[in-house]
Nucleic acid binder design. Structure first.
Lengths: 233, 233
DNA sequence: GTCTATACAGTGATAGAC
DNA sequence: GTCTATCACTGTATAGAC
């Protein structure tokens, strides 16, 4: 694996300072170093000292800019989650009933899942580690993790929830919500790729192959969403 | 549960009386204290010093008996997972096609999910914290977590995988495996109860209500399992 | 405002005496 | 087997330099 270029050398741009995207302020260098190291070595195995050394800044810079290690994590996550949420909404806007295209429900499922599966593994955004980071946060009960996920994804998720309720008018809203919850479960668990199913099936089923996972997941979920509502109580 | 009555005669020590279930050896006291504290305060917030103080043993005792904090976690998890795996297999043995009972697939799903949802929250086994611990381990990519889960659940899971393949003979084995993977995702994510869906739906959908979750989950999964297989490539 | 050097209280782990 | 003392290391906080 090649190291990401942290400092972008002078390209033609005439505004060298404060490039928001890939700036070389110490704040941005910390973010880049953290993304790189988390991707390379995992999450818990990377301490603040490793990050600050990689970024070429002082240890205290992390606390100055982000308040805490958790704050750094939050900033990093938010930055990486943004393109996913945006892509989701863009794809949602392109969903329409049309001959030759899959049913609307399948379109919605793909629009929701595809950005998470593809953008999630882009090296520029921290690579596969980010996907696992998401999965880990999803398993967290603490307030911080919840807040991070909510801020990053709730508005786009809510839009999808509404769209799905619209596509399934015969289903009570609460039922759609439960099923959306189950959808999140399959997505997050697949992204976590904890190796359980590989061990169980001796490798014949590999959730690390996200393209195939998507192809298997969408029909499975679509059938679940379309099933008759469960008795309520 | 009865333990063997055989006591070696003429031993120097008088009646060692190691009760395996709720013994007061230092090893068992550590396990009990850890289960209690993890349930009470969460996982990361509890240090070895708190555990050893609660158990009334020395700090080094943990490393002596379990090798490391991870080793303690593993022992604890294994002890708590065992009744779940056993209950699953027992319920699996009671599944049969019979008039007046749900279809076999639904029976299998319930036999698999019910022990995880009910035994998982029993206070005697560490309470709700154990459920979250499971969810957290499932999101872990590290070798240790994988090994723990495999040792605890793989044999019973494999039996269910086989049973489901048998109930769905028209489905390729790989397809059943993928769907079993999705089943695990919905289960773990529901058990994690990270608060996401509550926030999204303003509380109208609460996965903390595991009984209702089960009633919503089984039809959803059954429909997914029964859907036509996806194209393979 | 930004950044640095340094100190601090906490962790899990371990060697060796008893 | 058990305990004391200590180790290396963590995230955090602060005082002060530019």
């Amino acid at each position: 694996m090649s190291r990401p270029q942290i400092v972008s050398a002078g390209e033609g741009r005439a505004a060298p300072e404060k490039d928001v995207e890939s700036g070389n302020s110490s704040r941005d260098r910390i973010l880049a170093a953290a993304a790189w190291l988390f991707a390379e070595r995992g999450l818990a195995a990377v301490g603040l000292r490793a990050i600050t050394a990689e970024a070429g800044v002082n240890l205290a810079a992390v606390n100055y800019h982000f308040g805490s290690k958790e704050g750094l994590l939050e900033a990093l996550f938010e930055r990486q989650a943004k393109p996913i949420a945006e892509a989701r909404l863009r794809l949602l806007g392109e969903c329409r009933e049309e001959p030759g295209r899959p049913p609307l429900l399948e379109q919605l499922l793909e629009a929701f899942l595809l950005p998470a599966f593809t953008l999630g593994v882009e090296p520029a955004l921290g690579g596969a580690a980010f996907v696992r980071l998401r999965a880990r946060l999803a398993a967290e009960t603490e307030e911080m993790a919840r807040r991070i996920l909510v801020r990053a994804f709730d508005d786009s998720s809510l839009r999808f929830l509404d769209a799905m309720a619209e596509v399934l008018p015969e289903l009570p809203r609460a039922e759609v919500e439960w099923r959306f919850h189950f959808l999140l479960g399959t997505m997050v668990y697949t992204m976590a790729n904890n190796g359980r199913i590989q061990a169980l099936t001796k490798g014949s089923c590999d959730p690390g192959d996200l393209e195939q996972a998507l192809r298997k997941l969408i029909p499975f979920l679509a059938a679940g969403f379309r099933s008759a509502p469960a008795p309520d109580a």
